[in-house]
């Protein structure tokens, strides 16, 4: 899966909570820290990215709500993968 697609899905799902700018900036910052500089993202990197973004959301939304939002991101990513 392309990292840019993952970021796009994350931004779409998370932006109602923390805004488009913050969602994109946070997702891209975590991608950089994980060494994902564009191109493909592997499963391990994807799990780490979801974990990091979820932990960040936890600060604003609490554990339960953040987990629900990240589950929605996972669903969207799976749906996108199946559609391809």
């Amino acid at each position: 899966m392309l990292a840019s697609e993952v970021v796009q899905v994350m931004v779409r799902v998370i932006s109602p909570y923390i805004g488009d700018t913050m969602s994109r900036a946070a997702a891209e910052a975590h991608c950089q820290k994980l060494g994902v500089f564009g191109g493909l993202i592997n499963d391990e990197q994807l799990e780490a990215l979801l974990g990091k973004v979820g932990a960040g959301l936890n600060i604003f939304l609490g554990r339960e709500k953040a987990a629900n939002v990240m589950a929605e991101v996972r669903r969207e990513l799976r749906t996108g993968a199946v559609a391809r």
Partner: peptide
Amino acid sequence: RIALRLGTSRVG
């Protein structure tokens, strides 16, 4: 500065 980046979202 952070709040401006949160825009009109719910946390914003």
